[in-house]
Design a protein around this nucleic acid. Sequence first.
DNA 1: ATGAAAGCGCTAACAT
DNA 2: ATGTTAGCGCTTTCAT
Lengths: 334, 334
Amino acid sequence: MANYNDIAKLAKVSSTTVSHVINETRFVLPETKKRVKDAMKKLSYQPNLLARGLATGKTHTIGLVISDIKNPFYPELIQGVEELAVKNDYNVFLCNTDYDIEKGLKSIGALIRKKIDGIIITSSQADNLLLGEMINSKVPIVLVNWGRRNVKVDNICIDYKPGITEAVECMVSLGHRKIYFVSGPKTLKTAKIRINNFIGAIEKFNGLGLKYKVIDGNHKMDGGLKAVRKILKEKELPTAVICSNDLTAIGVMKGLRLAGIKVPEDVSVIGLDNIALTKIVSPMLTTIEIERYRIGKTAMEFLLKRIKEKDLPRQTVILKTKLIVRGSTSKAKT
Amino acid sequence: MANYNDIAKLAKVSSTTVSHVINETRFVLPETKKRVKDAMKKLSYQPNLLARGLATGKTHTIGLVISDIKNPFYPELIQGVEELAVKNDYNVFLCNTDYDIEKGLKSIGALIRKKIDGIIITSSQADNLLLGEMINSKVPIVLVNWGRRNVKVDNICIDYKPGITEAVECMVSLGHRKIYFVSGPKTLKTAKIRINNFIGAIEKFNGLGLKYKVIDGNHKMDGGLKAVRKILKEKELPTAVICSNDLTAIGVMKGLRLAGIKVPEDVSVIGLDNIALTKIVSPMLTTIEIERYRIGKTAMEFLLKRIKEKDLPRQTVILKTKLIVRGSTSKAKT
DNA sequence: ATGAAAGCGCTAACAT
DNA sequence: ATGTTAGCGCTTTCAT
């Protein structure tokens, strides 16, 4: 591997000049410039980005922390981040914490010591260790969906309320009066938020005497199945079920089908996430959309700006969810 | 950020000694060692891994190149790679080529200049540019599923033959005599291989007078749907359909259902990949399994060994596929 | 218009 | 048992 000295020697200039023609950072006579470029070509020169990073303090490298690569939430988000990153000449370190704080801390620590220019953290399990570690490391951070608002760093939040409210309104306007909600794991902040959003939306219809209930789920299919089993024990079934995520909804649909109950004729079901699966099951699932690609892209946009201008005012945005009506919802049986 | 000099000064030693206590690379008196460690703690020292990398030529960083993060094939593979990587103190650069050779080359070029210790390439579109670029860059490579055998680098291949053969045998033993295959895009090497494996397996039953045909698909759901439409035009339908991947199979199932044809009663269907989806559709899809997590893990194992010992003999392994029988297959109608 | 030289933070061969 | 010193490959200030 050739370096500046080799080039300099071959082109009969100093290594300073080599640096300057490579970075176009000061005037160099066209002819000397040519000599340098020729030399570079002849030696098929490749810059050593470690050395450059050491000298400049910029590595053109960022970190992306997620909690579970198998969660269908992530691929599009990652795509959004990576695409914009590459477009701006950044490379992306991927850290999959696997819900393991130790593992997360280990990776993130290494990234900081590798002098990444910034980091996007999407781990939905908001743990303060992580955050603390990060914040005083002075590395630019963007938080995604970090449950709690008003953190002091750039962040992008997802507002489930509009979507969940729409879902409830949709059910009500279709004549449903007994509406259940199958939740995610209670340990998850975003799951708790969804429950509250559901209850909030329901209670706006106080006058109609809606009946509702929140059943425990786990954001996986089997949680939906189990929830149905619980529901089936009641004397009078709900005619509508809204779920904390799509997998749960699909589990619910499956459970209902197994029990001989038809979706949407007997029971309407709504999910949340709009994962690819929702268009594959039948009936296609009515769901609340989260624009995952856009989340990733926005996060990267924030990070780029922050990297460019360290003391920008705090950037923050709230991405709203919205209902997408498909085949799993219909008028309530009368 | 403190550095060796700061520590050295505080501990009243030379920076060499600091280096040696940090790396445990030569004997240091317990007492001096303690002074150094205390100094490190007091300054809350963090090593600069760029500098270390520049000095040692090792960055403890690898690259992972995939072609489409949204392909359900990848998450588990990535998990396999990343998990083992972190366990061995490596960080992973993720490059999503998005089927765009330019983009891939750009990212990979950057990684090489960032002095990654090795790279795993899984891009299924075997393009020689990529490979060429890599091979003469002297960076340790592991290829996954690179279609063509006998490349000169470490590689892990997937042998579709056992699985596809089992699939055909299964269909035959269930009494099916007219078996169709819905292929992937013809441009894809692995798709062509699967077609050949299918034909090979079928022709072993020459004596039985099997009827078969290969219909074009595209490895997506709509390809499966279209294939069904084509098939429906024939006077006599096949009783069994084997598909080049699961998405196609799910499209086929959907198409059949739309046409009022029952799976598996009227037509049996088999997919390939064993993505999570296969357990969610109903009936659950009989499919040919590829152990994606294991592929990732094995690739990383190969890479670690290669990094440790540059001129090991070429490592190679063929991971076999196998049939997983679920609900989408049953005895042929008589 | 170009060069010399110091420095980024670490390692390692060579002294002592 | 510890220190001196010369790199690793690049950037950048200061000279000329």
